[in-house]
Amino acid sequence: MRIAFTSVGTNWDAQIDPRFGRTAFLVLFNEETAQLEAVDNSGVQADAHGAGTAMAQRIYELHPDVLITGNGPGDTASKALKNLHMRIYVEAHNMSLKEAYEKYKKQELTAL
């Protein structure tokens, strides 16, 4: 399983970023290889609009199995992600990636 987190930093202790399109980083965890990889999303900061769809396109390219985030994608981005069949968990803000991952494992996160 490959799990993506919207995150304010690049390691397990970083907080989940509540934002979807404007998240600081997208951190990917590959459960098979136990590797953690961070994708910088600062490029989108220059754009006034469309941060959500730009992120949706990124997520399609990276195709994780699971996404863990805060508020969850907005309307437009949700439409874009519909065909991806990726599981989305929300309301993981106010926790670190590690805490969010543990909660996910215990099935304590809210599924969208």
């Binding site: 509540p18 934002r19 404007r22 609009h49 805060g70 508020n71 907005g74 803000h93």
Partner: peptide, 11 residues
């Protein structure tokens, strides 16, 4: 609109 959605993040 979009600015409102943006101000809701993390609320």
């Amino acid at each position: 609109g979009c600015p409102v959605v943006s101000s809701l993040a993390g609320a």
